[in-house]
Nucleic acid binder design. Structure first.
Length: 502
RNA sequence: GGUCCUGUGGCCGAGUGGCUAGGCAGAGCUCUGCAAAAGCUUCCACAGCGGUUCGAAUCCGCUCGGGACCUCCA
């Protein structure tokens, strides 16, 4: 009954024990709001939403911090970063905060669509410039950073002499330092020649005149480096050492490695007890990412307006699709895979709806002991599987084992008293807890329309009358026309007819 | 080039050395006025070659293939 999670830092599954009993501090790297979120972004936020929900289900009080990266080098997609001294009127100029607002709103919208619970705190980088500057000053004071031309760099070589820089990402420090000597350094990153060593990373960057986001600092006008915000905000809200830090695998290096270095110098302690990293979503076997130019934006996914998509996909379908694989495995996207997930999810959800309507029998003794035991075992495994490094696909597999049992009871193929009353109750409770509360899934169809409901009842009543008079022309007309409108009706075994919006 | 991960049936995906993953698709059957749905049954696997073992998809080695990171990146 105890949770084990795979710790990227030790590369082992470890039994989870929170630093403060009963409480968990969790930090997850949030989005950079300089562009629209795509399918790849959905994975960490859904995966860690499930972790968050599961920890809460295990009665932990969780403080979940997920940042918004809204500082840095900004330009609008398809539009060059504009010169601040351009002659354009104020309102025509690119206003960074306007962009940030737009994409933050879009991100929040997507998270809501995915039914992700909002984090406890969602700090922004721009709102914590002061904290970052203070932290950088501290690192300088401790001798692990140096200032060059208004920029500040972290001294990796000095740090690595006494700490294991590279451990998290499995990097060999000597090679990183040697990268210095590589001739094919084609990175024309500004300031590269200012560094003492190529492995050093920026804590603060001096802003060139055309840079539109800039703040005053002890070193001149500039903006924070790429890694300091997470260290500063995590420390502020979760303390110098906290339980879980999550994010995509692609952030392990250099981002998380650098976070460890910064925080370790400032706080004299390693910041994170358990590092959790989700794997990538691939498309045709390749990571979905801006640089590969193969992204499917969430807006395109939900609306079906991408060349690779044959139809729109409901956010719950996408969420289910992601939960069907383990968070540490790569997940290959395709239109067909999503269609399969959609069908699977609909079938599972319908079984769940059927389950909720089952009326318990009166027998406390199971007439089919073997079945009762199997059902009980499948149900108990829900938690066991989740305890084993959040194995959502295994839980889902068990749910699919149970679906035929539920449907058979509903259709009378299995008698209700084949299983104990208590087993049925457990089944209802477990399904609601895991499907709704922990997996965060909800119904996909919008058949709860209050106006439509009585209209449908009327239509189905007319059809029923026609059928009873063997007037199949009328009954089929109703069914076919409704199907054409996207409403599917099914004649149930008990003589009733159910319907839903496809 | 360096570090690491990975290769499961038509597709997607679990797999802790021995016992059914699961889903989608396919085939057959049951139910049904006909459908749909549901239920039952069924076909199709472990990249290749060696090795360890009583026994390997699972451990080791090699070969081939794929990917991630080394640069902003979930």
């Amino acid at each position: 009954m105890s949770l084990s999670i795979y710790n990227s830092y030790s590369r082992k599954k470890e039994v989870f024990a929170s630093i403060t009993p009963g409480h968990v501090g969790m930090y997850v790297c949030g989005p950079t709001v300089s562009g629209e979120s795509h399918l790849g972004h959905a994975r960490p936020y859904i995966s860690f939403d499930v972790v968050y929900r599961f920890l809460q289900a295990k009665n932990y009080k969780v403080r979940y911090v997920r940042n918004i990266t809204d500082a840095g080098h900004f330009e609008e997609e398809g539009r060059e970063a504009e010169d601040k001294v351009s002659t354009k009127a104020q309102l025509e100029k690119l206003e960074p905060m306007e962009l940030v607002q737009k994409y933050t709103n879009l991100f929040h919208w997507a998270m809501k669509e995915f039914n992700c619970i909002e984090p406890s705190i969602e700090p922004t980088a721009t709102g914590h410039i002061v904290e970052q500057i203070v932290m950088i000053e501290d690192i300088i004071a401790k001798g692990y950073a140096y200032v060059v031309n208004g920029s500040v760099y972290f001294d990796v070589k000095k740090y690595a002499a006494h700490h294991d820089y590279g451990k998290l990402s499995g990097r060999v420090i000597d090679e990183l330092l040697e990268a210095n000597n590589r001739t094919q350094v084609s990175r024309d990153l500004e300031g590269q020649d200012e560094k003492r060593d190529a492995a050093d990373f920026a804590l603060w960057k001096a802003a060139p005149p055309e840079h539109i986001m800039r703040w005053k600092s002890p070193w001149g006008e500039g903006f924070p480096g790429w890694h300091i915000e997470c260290s500063a905000m995590a420390t502020k809200y979760l303390g110098t050492s906290f339980d879980i830090h999550g994010g995509g695998m692609d952030l392990q290096f250099p981002h998380h490695e650098s976070e460890i270095a910064q925080s370790t110098i400032c706080n004299h302690t390693s910041p994170v007890k358990y590092w959790m990293h989700n794997n990538m979503i691939t498309i045709n076997g390749r990571k979905m990412g801006k640089s590969y130019n193969n992204v499917i934006k969430l807006t395109e996914l939900f609306s079906g307006t991408h060349p690779l998509l044959s139809q729109p996909f409901h956010p719950m379908t996408v969420r289910f699709f992601i939960l069907q694989s383990h968070y540490r495995s790569p997940l290959d996207f395709s239109n067909d895979a999503l269609i399969a997930s959609e069908k699977a999810f609909k079938r599972l959800w319908e079984a769940y709806e059927n389950l909720k309507k089952l009326v318990p029998g009166s027998n406390e003794n199971a007439s089919d002991k073997e079945l009762d035991e199997k059902v009980t075992q499948w149900l108990h495994q829900f938690e066991e599987f989740m305890d084993d490094d959040i194995s959502t696909p295994k839980v889902i597999a068990n749910m699919f084992e149970l679906a035929p049992v539920i449907n058979s009871i509903k259709d009378g193929l299995i008698k209700i008293d084949a299983i104990k009353v208590s087993t049925l109750q457990l089944m209802k409770e477990r399904f609601t807890t895991f499907l709704e509360n922990i997996f965060g899934l909800k119904s996909i169809d919008g058949a709860t329309n209050e106006v439509l409901q009585p209209v449908m009842e009327l239509l189905l009543e007319i059809r029923k009358e026609a059928k009873s008079k063997k007037d199949f022309a009328t009954s089929d007309k109703i069914r076919n026309q409704l199907t054409a409108m996207g409403i599917v009706i099914k004649d149930e075994k008990d003589g009733n007819t159910s319907w839903n919006i496809a």
